[in-house]
Simulated assay, not measured.
Amino acid sequence: MSTAKGGNGGAAADGGKGGAGKGQRSRAASGGGSGARRGSGVPAAPAAGPAPLTPGRIGIYVLLLVAGVLVALAGTLVQAAWFPGGLVLALAAVGGLFYGGTRATGTTAGALVPGAAWLVTVFLLLSDVRPEGDFLFGPGAGSYVFLLGGILVAVICATAAQMRTTGARPGRVGG
């Protein structure tokens, strides 16, 4: 059987017949096929295109938007209340929301929609100062770690989702 590499690749295996018998065409000359070899074990790259916007997907995005606002509110309160553990818990909730949104929708928007809602809510809460001088974020470093950590987690989840949708395989480059 001739390989798809062309040339006289099957000469040794066919006894010098050049890979194609009388009246037969080799796989390389057949012109058909999808470009991916059968049996090679390498999956074909997924179709590059946006996922269709169905009512169910819109509903998921609305739920992710609301969850982003709620996680921002809860994280703002928890990270300052129990400093070391609360900050870790708040960032874990943010990471779980963004990763879960990515897995639920299968798109980058699954991380970007709750990420944008979280970011807007956190910045609104950060800028909201009451006349008494009180605000929800404490003056310590934990507030900045929560803000920058949440942004970093959103970027990581969105980038990982984008790599999954383009079919990039994990592993070494050039290996």
Score class of each variant (00 low, 15 high):
G175V: 04
P84M: 10
G18D: 11
Q162Y: 11
G150R: 09
G106F: 03
G171Y: 04
P139S: 09
G86H: 10
R169I: 10
A4Y: 13
L63R: 09
T76I: 02
G19C: 15
G86D: 12
Q24D: 10
G110M: 04
D14H: 06
T3W: 13
Y61M: 11
G115P: 12
F137S: 03
E132S: 15
G171K: 06
P131T: 06
Y144Q: 15
R25S: 15
P131C: 01
A13L: 12
G16N: 14
L119P: 02
T159W: 11
L136W: 15
A51E: 11
A109Q: 08
V66G: 01
G19V: 03
V69F: 06
P131H: 01
L97W: 09
T102F: 02
P131G: 05
A4D: 07
A29I: 00
G49D: 10
A67V: 09
R25A: 15
R130N: 02
A11M: 09
F135T: 14
P46W: 05
A67C: 05
G9M: 07
P114Y: 08
S30H: 11
T102H: 08
L87Y: 07
G35L: 07
D128F: 14
G33K: 09
G100C: 06
A44P: 12
R172A: 13
R37H: 09
L77Y: 12
G167H: 04
L63Q: 09
I151P: 00
A44Y: 01
M1G: 14
F123K: 01
G35K: 02
Y99Q: 06
L63M: 14
P50I: 00
A47F: 12
G49R: 12
P170E: 05
V69K: 02
A93M: 14
G15Y: 07
A93P: 05
V145K: 03
A158N: 06
A90T: 05
V71S: 08
L70H: 00
R172D: 08
A72Q: 09
R37G: 13
G149V: 14
T76Q: 04
D14N: 07
P43R: 12
G133C: 04
Q24N: 11
